[in-house]
Amino acid sequence: MTLKEKLDLLSLPEEEQKKAEEKFLASLEYVTDEEIIDILDVLAEKGIKITRAREIKIVTNPVSKIKKNFDFIEEAHEPGIYSEDLNRLNSNGVDIFKRIRYCLQFNIPYKNEDGTYKDFIFKESLFQSEINNSDIKTESATIETDTLDDSVSDDVTIPEIDMDEAEPINDDVEHQDIQEYMQAKSDLDNIEAQTTTFAQIKQDLEAQLAELDALRSQTDYDNDNVYRFNDIEQETYDVGRGRAA
């Protein structure tokens, strides 16, 4: 299939088709027509269509990456992220998700007044600048994971990368990251559920203790009465025996 034929699969509006032919056709060299159709199908499931020439490169992503990105954004309840700019699908959705969670944790606004997303959500260097400009220190800038083990806590810093060794993150590593995150989230949900149960048990025990205390008080009163009755009995006995004063 020629590049033009591959482009036709996208059914872009006429003006965008022209732009694509002039500037953005080269990326289609790296995908087959089947791969293009697979991506278009995934987008269609979400009611999304590529309508701009600059978005063509989305089809060069693996289907698994696009699906994972959608999963993360649904988890974050932020469906508008991709409808605003489809090219964000090229990004690592995990990182966007982490930055949003961080902003929620530290009350950093990540949307503009018109509801669109601020640029720093999508770029690590801008995100770091935003943190530095706010009063939050990077050392304390960890996503709240106090009840999880250390393997899933995150520091939001740019890692040192050896440029000679630098390779794009492969899908297996991304998949492992996502698996670990989902497991950690499940663990946290379980701990929270247990905490709720323990709180309820404690409440019940406290109620029982209060009842016991009440009963004890009642018993003491009765005990006092028993003692008093015994005293009277003794007096009576003593009187009877002539011992009363």
């Binding site: 790296y30 992503n61 693996p62 990004s91 999508f122 260097s125 794009p168």
Partner: peptide, 16 residues
């Protein structure tokens, strides 16, 4: 280096 790292992390592998 930060820009390059960011680019590598946020672009389709095939295009990289």
């Amino acid at each position: 280096k930060e820009d390059i790292a960011e680019f590598l992390n946020n672009s389709p592998k095939k295009l990289i």
